[in-house]
Amino acid sequence: MRHPSYLLACLYLLSLSACTSVTIDEYQRAEASLASGDRIVLLGRRHSPDYETEPDLINCVGKVISANQSGISVIPEKQFVDELYPWFEPRMAPMRPERLEYLMKQPQVREKIEDLKLRYVIWIDGSTQQTGSAGSVGCAVGPGGGGCFGFGTWDDKSDYEAEVWDYQKQDLVAKVSADAKGTSYMPALVVPIPLLARVQSNACKGLGAQLREIFVPDSSANAGA
């Protein structure tokens, strides 16, 4: 009789996840509109020596933007960077929208971008870092079996900023920032039970939804309906 209640307690703990708080800020300078066939690309900044914007975060934001039949076509980051090699490598990538004009002077680059039907470039800069940790979990194995005991906790912080550039006008359209914080817990009583704060994932969802709003206003309301 003791076993089912123990199992239920474990299942209950597994279904829990730690809380994350997300703050989204937006600054929009101009209207953004996509004509039929126009596409966008999301690119991660990789020029900082201390961190790299994670490729999986870029993929995640791309999926959120194109989800719920938003009608937004996103060019995969790797495909775009490879087809336009080397003009979007960290050493060469334009840091300001005005620099797109220089790129357009390269005939092969202009042709390739027109082939891809690119209208907006979205640069995402930032990363998710562990900011602190406490506690410890110890595991041991003996002839009669093994187990883990202890309690660990750690804090994660995501800090991302997205810039939307209009390729045709070579101008900044909007800036969106996403800050997310969360604490994960790992109690271990024989079996470790991770209660993870999905910090990066929540930052991705918040950032993606806000960026989608720029291209398809009220899309979140429609998605929720």
Binding site: E83, L84, Y85, P86, W87, Q106, Q108, V109, K112
Partner: peptide, 8 residues
């Protein structure tokens, strides 16, 4: 894999 560069 290495892409071929777009250049003149």
């Amino acid at each position: 894999q290495f892409p071929s560069p777009l250049t003149t």
